[in-house]
Amino acid sequence: MVKREHLSLEMECLTLFQSNPYLFETIQGLEKRLGRKMSDLEPILESLTAQGILQRTGEGAMAYFRYKEPAVIAEFSFTSELEPL
């Protein structure tokens, strides 16, 4: 079902947001950052948002996406902070 080029573009988006956890970008901004067409990015961002990996805020052109830190990892790094060894 999912096209191969979609997969790699999905990985690209995912990597971008994972290595930049405090990146807040619109589709337009992502088009510039990734050098990919908006029309190609749109379905991928939709799908990542639906999976709960990205969070979308706002409407229209000013809607922006950010990475949603998986809860488990957040907790994990929190406890490791408390008990440094």
């Binding site: 405090y22 970008e25 619109t26």
Partner: peptide, 10 residues
């Protein structure tokens, strides 16, 4: 600390 990547318009 936060290092925020963002477009100036947003």
């Amino acid at each position: 600390l936060r290092v925020i990547g963002i477009s100036p318009d947003i």
